[in-house]
Amino acid sequence: MLDVYVWFYTGAFLVIFGSIGTAIGPGVKDPLIRTINTEIPAIGVSLIFLTYNHTIALLTFIAATTIISMILLRAIVRLEEMGAEL
């Protein structure tokens, strides 16, 4: 039973810590670094899903996170290549 709580609180910690890191972490002016940082809350959410035994949701979430980070990277690279100043 203890495991469940360890998962949950690790997940919660990762979500909050990762969010702060994504929002104001060192070097987040670079969109690439910010995108890598968003992986931390994503793993945190996965752990929370695991706590509740949302297995299928967890599987889909793992797949979706990868796709989302790919989409974001594509946008970043592309905008950088264009030299866009947003």
Partner: peptide, 17 residues
């Protein structure tokens, strides 16, 4: 704008939880 787009991801995380 690009950073805003990335940051909405975190808001989405809140929704999922």
């Amino acid at each position: 704008d690009l950073h805003t787009l990335i940051l909405t991801d975190i808001v989405g995380v809140g929704m999922l939880i």
